[in-house]
């Protein structure tokens, strides 16, 4: 008989402390649940939905669902992984994700997750939106084509840097990132390359200038180790 409260994750008992979410408890037990908008330094956000798990027939965000004693949770199962692949496909077709010409390639969580989950095709029709880049800042480039709206930069800049450089505006498929300046240019904000927000983007939107492609192909973070392993060490790619 178990001493502590626990739930079953893909058939294996995972203990948890009161108030822990499914994702946190799983992670503490060394079990990876895919995610993009979740980060250990921030409260759950629940927007990317990659951490979806099946709990008693309902599909819930593991990052936002409190662990419950005795719950039966399915994560790494074909049905859930198929839904995750479809969510990745949605993220790939709504933006412009051209990995070969992206300096975040090999360091990108979206790409790494798609690889691990076996996404071979974006499947749906591409939206090919027109999103100009913002190169106005001396040290940092913004390439909005790759934004997945995880709001990690919004949260990091607000909660850790105390600057609130980023926000989202508009809604639905027209939702997009804006910066804290009337001109709309990053160069007119107080953003700095050593801000926490400058290093937190899981994809290739916020890029420090003059360091791109520095790591050779084959040695990049996700070239050798899958995201399920890397993610358990640390969050930033």
């Amino acid at each position: 008989m178990m001493e502590t409260a626990h739930f079953l994750l893909d058939g294996v008992a995972v203990p948890f402390a009161e108030g822990q979410t499914i994702l946190e408890a799983a992670r503490a037990a060394g079990r990876y649940i895919p995610h993009l908008c979740w980060h250990p330094d921030f409260p759950p956000h629940g927007s990317c939905k990659l951490c979806i798990v099946a709990v008693g027939g309902r599909h819930l965000s593991a990052c936002a669902t409190p662990a419950v004693d005795g719950a039966v949770v399915a994560s790494d199962v074909p049905e859930i992984n198929a839904e995750r692949r479809a969510l990745l496909q949605m993220l790939f077709v709504e933006g412009n994700h051209f990995c070969p010409s992206c300096e975040k390639s090999g360091l990108c969580q979206l790409q790494a997750l798609a690889s691990e989950l076996g996404m071979t095709t974006p499947r749906f029709n591409h939206f090919y939106p027109d999103r100009p880049v913002d190169a106005s800042h001396p040290d940092v480039l913004l390439d909005f084509n790759r934004c997945i709206y995880c709001e990690l930069c919004v949260r990091a800049s607000r909660d850790q840097d105390g600057k609130s450089v980023f926000a989202l505006t508009n809604r639905g498929i027209h939702k997009h990132l804006v910066v804290n300046a009337e001109s709309g240019r990053l160069g007119d904000t107080d953003f700095a390359a050593d801000d926490v927000a400058a290093g937190i983007c899981p994809v290739g939107v916020i890029l420090r200038k003059r360091v791109g492609f520095a790591v050779p192909i084959g040695s990049r973070t996700y070239d050798t180790r899958p995201i399920s392993a890397v993610s358990m060490d640390r969050e930033e790619p």
Partner: peptide, 11 residues
């Protein structure tokens, strides 16, 4: 065919 990490890549 089954593709996954590290064989499945986009660059």
């Amino acid at each position: 065919p089954r593709l996954g990490h590290p064989a499945l890549r986009y660059d």
